[in-house]
Design a protein around this nucleic acid. Structure first.
Lengths: 201, 201, 201, 201
DNA sequence: AATGAATGAGGCTTCATTCAT
DNA sequence: GATGAATGAAGCCTCATTCAT
């Protein structure tokens, strides 16, 4: 919520969602430590106390936001892979598409999981670590499989995988929604880049 | 500075450097807002007042750290390019090497410039923007030149450039200094990836 | 509530008693300011709103607890004295017994009236002051009478009275219910002490 | 510090003492939980931050106040006993005098150690427990010795000891400094009471 | 060149209480 | 007879900074 913007009117009982949304936006724009819970409450159009009625605290909000974001990404990947069938190239395209679309549709918030991970307290970190590595494994399995089957010819699968992911993730940092570049075109470009990175025949 | 570590003994007159170094480490580990000026003073082994003797304040320290970091990167790039001659492929390798080496040798601090940029006050941001775009231009000129001369055959030079940079930058997030992977080998791998991304013949 | 209006008749139900009991326990264990109204509601197994349905607020609860506690003590004293007859020594024994038994049977709560008295708002304090001094007068009358009749030979009745009361009250601070010391034996010991304090012939 | 009283002007560097004194007064008058650190800072004539410059927090202040109070009492007892020589009756008089004088001269604060003990966090409680039981042992040794030597003929030394202590301690609750009753006279009265309690021949 | 003392603003959180149902 | 939702005030504490030496 940019300063000066009128806070939304929250329907009675709708506090939890309003607060989570406001937290997501603030954490994305100003970071965890740069966000005060007053910012969040104001952004949600509620009082400070209402925030504590719905969440245990700031840390709890961060965990909720990261969890939701990670879950959504994981869900998109999972679904894309299910539709993609068995072909490594198609599966690569599916994950690239899921990642690009996620990064574009959640442009601001999608970086929270990565950049604010360090601010999670151990208890939350441990709980979310599994979700995180599950998403990571999707990529690893895919690339390893492609290499094993001779479809991807890159010599260093781990580095290739990281390069593809980093390339896709970076989109959130420069993409302009109204900049004349459509998402399908974007997906196509990064699929091509990804195929070159893994040296897909 | 990890908790429990004895603060270094600062030689008389060496305050400025000790403080900048401590600020760099704290900003890297905990972020700008996650770092207190007392953390920095403690990390430098100096009093709070000493910090203010050498620097105008926290914001000033952030600007100094980002400036120094950007300048170093820019210097490395510049030098590498000068040694590389005129060949686009060689020049690409030079920038990749400069970036990888920078990211590995300044593993923690190298992300400050990117992640804490938003916390710079306008005055500092404007001043540093030029340095920033100069480094960015080195990459753009290089890729555009390679494409213009037909050495790089990628269709979308901007995306290729961003992918290469993102891939190299990401190294700082996973590299383990004592992990058995040497820097020259790392440079070689990412040079190969970069060449594939730009589709270097 | 407008002045002069009769307080609403509270329908009987389990809530009121459960809340009073929880308040008594919390005030005893953590003190008035150390107890939150949520502690009380939780201790009673009811919601916050239920608490406010039965009581006007925290202050009201404190007054109720102190009133009940004082009334019980006063009742015990009164009854014991009625049974004791006219002999000063017997009357002294009766009050000691009432006090000791009260302090032992209400070990935790019996101190609330004394230690939280200062937290009563003036309105409540004035109302309860009479009960308080009535109990105090029982002791004073007894000792003064014993002295007047030459049965107690202590020179300073006021100090003797205070010493006896303080000695009995202190029992609540150290007595262990399962510690092998029975209440009758305890009463006997403190009766003896009390008689020596007033110098009963 | 009563409300409305002008806070004292604190000489530069004298913050620590001013704050400890203000804490002592507030804890005594309103209890630990009833005292806010703003009360303390205001009472000391300093800012909130100055309080934290000198003490780690509210809990730290409580521990400091209790420690100082206990130490002073212990010191008074120790000195009084040293002057008293070997005679049990004289030693009893010495401890009574030390206790009475302490309770009168530190009328308000002397109860903090007892009433706020439960609000000490375990770390502090453990640290101070030894001081506490040392003072307690002075009394126990004295009474046991008197009984062993046949000077005190009470049958239950533990109860006698507790009664004497409770009687002396209670003085702080009713004594009025300008009430016409001098401290020497007070000491004499309670010494007599104590002797009767232990049944000193 | 450096320090300890002090500050006002703001941090997160809990408080007792009221509202609408 | 009872509840979940919401609030404003106040709680303790840490912040970046300045002052006097």
């Amino acid at each position: 919520m940019s300063p000066g913007t009128a806070p939304p009117v929250v329907p009675r009982g709708g506090g939890r969602e309003a607060i989570t949304r406001a937290a997501r936006e603030s954490f994305a724009e100003r970071g965890y430590h740069g966000t005060s819970i007053r910012d969040i409450a104001r952004g949600a159009g509620l009082s400070l106390s209402a925030l504590y009625h719905w969440h245990a605290g700031k840390q709890d909000l961060l965990a909720a936001v990261i969890e939701e974001s990670t879950a959504e990404y994981f869900g998109r990947c999972d679904e894309a892979l299910r539709e993609a069938g068995d072909d490594p190239a198609a599966r690569l395209g599916a994950l690239v598409r899921a990642t690009v679309e996620y990064r574009v549709s959640r442009q601001v918030e999608s970086t929270i999981a990565a950049s604010e991970w360090r601010n999670l307290e151990p208890a939350h970190r441990e709980r979310l670590a599994e979700m995180r590595s599950a998403a990571s494994r999707l990529w690893a399995d895919l690339v390893d499989d492609g290499v094993a089957r001779g479809v991807f010819r890159c010599e260093h699968p781990d580095d290739a995988r990281r390069a593809v992911i980093a390339s896709c993730n970076a989109i959130a940092q420069w993409f302009e929604p109204d900049g004349g570049l459509g998402v399908p075109e974007l997906v196509e470009r990064y699929t091509a880049i990804a195929r070159r990175i893994v040296d897909c025949r």
